[in-house]
Each structure stands twice: as structure tokens, then as C-alpha cells.
Measured scan of single mutants.
Amino acid sequence: MKVTIEENEETGKFTIKVKTEDGEEKTIEIPKENLEEILAKLPPNVEII
């Protein structure tokens, strides 16, 4: 699983794009305050880009 994290400076939010092993892609946008909480919940086999 690969996770790409991009900061949107205009909105102050982060866009998180997840690509699973089977090629499925999902995108979510979260507030900056929630980034550490989300990262802590990721499984250890995740590659963060």
C-alpha cells in the first residue's frame, strides 16, 4: 500500500491519496490538526510518499 500526502497551503488541509496492492485508489482531505492521528493509525507495511 502506498500513501501520498500533499499539503494544500490555501485551505490548510492535507490531501491523502491511498493506492492499495490491488490498484484501488482513494483520496481524502483532512485538517492539518488530524494528520498525526491519521498517521498513527496506518499499518506498518505502508509506504509513505
Rank of each mutant, 00 (worst) to 15 (best):
E7H: 13
G23A: 03
I49P: 03
E37I: 09
E10V: 11
T15R: 03
N8C: 07
K17M: 10
G23K: 01
E33C: 07
K26L: 15
K2N: 06
E29L: 10
A40N: 08
V18Y: 14
E7M: 14
N8S: 06
E47S: 11
T4Y: 15
N34G: 13
P43N: 06
I48V: 12
I48W: 14
I28C: 15
E36H: 12
K41I: 11
E37D: 11
I16C: 03
V18D: 01
I38P: 02
K32Q: 07
E33F: 08
L35W: 06
E21N: 08
T27G: 03
A40G: 11
E7V: 13
K13R: 14
T15K: 05
K17T: 15
E21K: 04
I16F: 08
P44K: 06
G12L: 02
T11Y: 03
E6K: 04
E21R: 04
L35D: 00
T4H: 06
I16R: 00
D22K: 07
I5D: 00
P44V: 10
K32M: 09
G12I: 01
A40L: 10
N34R: 14
I49H: 09
K2W: 15
T20K: 05
K19F: 14
M1V: 09
K26W: 15
K32W: 10
I28Y: 15
T15C: 09
A40M: 11
K13Q: 11
A40E: 09
L39N: 00
E10P: 03
L35M: 07
K19A: 09
E47H: 09
K17H: 14
I38D: 01
K41E: 07
T27K: 07
T27P: 01
T20I: 07
T27M: 12
I30D: 01
E7A: 10
K32I: 08
F14K: 01
P43W: 13
E10T: 11
V18L: 13
T20V: 07
G23M: 02
P31F: 14
K41F: 09
V46I: 11
P43M: 05
P43D: 07
M1L: 11
E9G: 10
E36F: 12
E7N: 06
E6I: 15
E36K: 12
G12R: 03
I48P: 02
I5A: 01
K2S: 12
E36S: 09
E25V: 13
N45Q: 05
E33Y: 08
V46P: 02
E37C: 11
I49T: 08
L39F: 07
F14D: 01
E7I: 14
T20R: 04
L42W: 06
N45L: 05
G12Q: 04
V3K: 00
E25H: 05
E10K: 13
K2C: 14
A40Y: 04
E37G: 08
P31H: 12
I16G: 00
T11I: 04
K19G: 09
G23W: 02
L39A: 01
N34F: 14
M1F: 08
T4Q: 06
T20M: 09
V18K: 00
V3Q: 01
P44C: 07
D22F: 09
T11D: 09
I28Q: 03
K17P: 01
V46L: 07
I49Q: 05
V18I: 15
I30F: 08
V18G: 00
L35Y: 03
I48H: 04
E7L: 15
V46C: 08
M1H: 06
E36N: 09
T15F: 10
T15I: 15
T15V: 12
E6D: 04
E37F: 10
G12W: 03
F14T: 05
D22Y: 10
L39C: 04
P44M: 10
L39K: 03
V3F: 06
I5C: 05
V3Y: 05
I38C: 12
E9Q: 11
K13C: 13
F14A: 04
E24I: 12
K2I: 14
T27V: 13
V3W: 11
T4I: 13
T20L: 11
K19H: 14
K17E: 05
K32S: 06
V18T: 08
E24H: 10
V18W: 15
L42G: 01
G23H: 03
E29Y: 12
